[in-house]
């Protein structure tokens, strides 16, 4: 309802991007839009899959957190590990392996992998670019950025460009609404290292510049692109003043490690 009323207000003031209307918008997905598995050369259940020693170490750390009867809690972090190892997507053989490790029926892993938009089920490029399209970003013009990126990369939403470097995608709210519009770029280019960075306060030009810098091999500055520190307003700091050198006052918290006192002994 909220988005519908905003839409009606915006169309009256003619500030709005006219192309996408809510009645005609396609269902939003990131990665694979199909909710069914399709066999490809790299994505088949017959292929063997196992974590590399580096990822087994991390997987064992995750599994150690849960009791033996609660292993199923490890499915989501393990899916994340598998996605990093396979350079950006979870193939079906990895899902089957995870179901075997966690001792859950296979369908439970399918459910998890299809539910969370951050898991891709088809291969992506080296950099996965996801544009936030929730209400605050939409008001600040995320659709224009999307259009510009589509033109620049020469591919549509949900596709990879001809070089195999960038994949465009949509994303729901990332919690950086103060700095809208924003873009998330996850980096799968050198496997054991993985980064997942926010680029905020974008304009059409700065968004393209971020991508161009990455293409050139440079690392663009993470965070706001218009030069403001974090999410500071135009007036600067208006509350929470601290003197230089003084420590920030923490809220009160009881000593968690202290043992409870016996009331009878007090008396």
């Amino acid at each position: 309802m909220l988005s519908r009323t905003i839409r009606s207000v915006l169309t009256k003031t003619n500030k709005c991007f006219v192309n996408r209307t809510f009645t005609n918008c396609a269902p939003r997905f990131s990665g694979n839009a199909l909710l069914e598995h399709v066999d490809t050369d790299d994505n088949r259940s017959e292929l063997p899959f196992d974590f590399t020693p580096h990822y087994w170490e991390e997987a064992n750390k995750i599994l150690a957190k849960y009791p033996p009867h609660g292993k199923q809690s490890a499915t989501v972090p393990l899916l994340d590990l598998a996605q990093r190892q396979c350079k950006g997507y979870v193939p079906i053989q990895a899902m089957h392996k995870i179901a075997e490790i966690c001792g859950v029926p296979r369908k439970q892993v399918y459910e998890n992998a299809t539910f969370y938009a951050m898991f891709n089920r088809t291969p992506v490029g080296k950099y996965h670019v996801q544009v936030c399209v929730t209400t605050p970003c939409m008001l600040r013009g995320c659709d224009e950025i999307m259009e510009a990126l589509e033109k620049h990369l020469g591919c549509k939403n949900g596709e990879t460009d001809s070089e195999g470097l960038f994949t465009l995608g949509e994303m729901e709210c990332m919690g950086a609404c103060v700095n809208a519009p924003m873009v998330v770029i996850s980096d799968y280019s050198n496997p054991p290292n993985f980064s997942y960075d926010f680029y905020e306060d974008l304009t059409v030009e700065s968004a393209i510049e971020v991508l161009e810098k990455i293409r050139r091999g440079q690392k663009p500055t993470v965070g706001p692109q218009n030069g403001r520190p974090n999410s500071l307003g135009p007036q600067g700091r208006t509350s929470l003043f601290f003197d230089k050198g003084s420590e920030v006052q923490k809220p009160y918290c009881r000593d968690i490690n202290a043992q409870p006192e016996n009331k009878e002994q007090k008396k």
Binding site: P27, F29, L35, E36, H37, S45, I92, P105, R106, K107, Q108, Y110, E111, T114, F115
Partner: peptide, 27 residues
């Protein structure tokens, strides 16, 4: 399928409006 037949082959795939009941791997 889960509780009585003992063949857990079906699940709810996707979320929200696009949620559907399917056998993802064509089980």
């Amino acid at each position: 399928a889960d509780e009585l037949a003992g063949v857990p082959f079906l699940g709810t795939m996707g979320k929200g409006v696009n949620m559907e009941i399917s056998n993802y791997f064509k089980n």
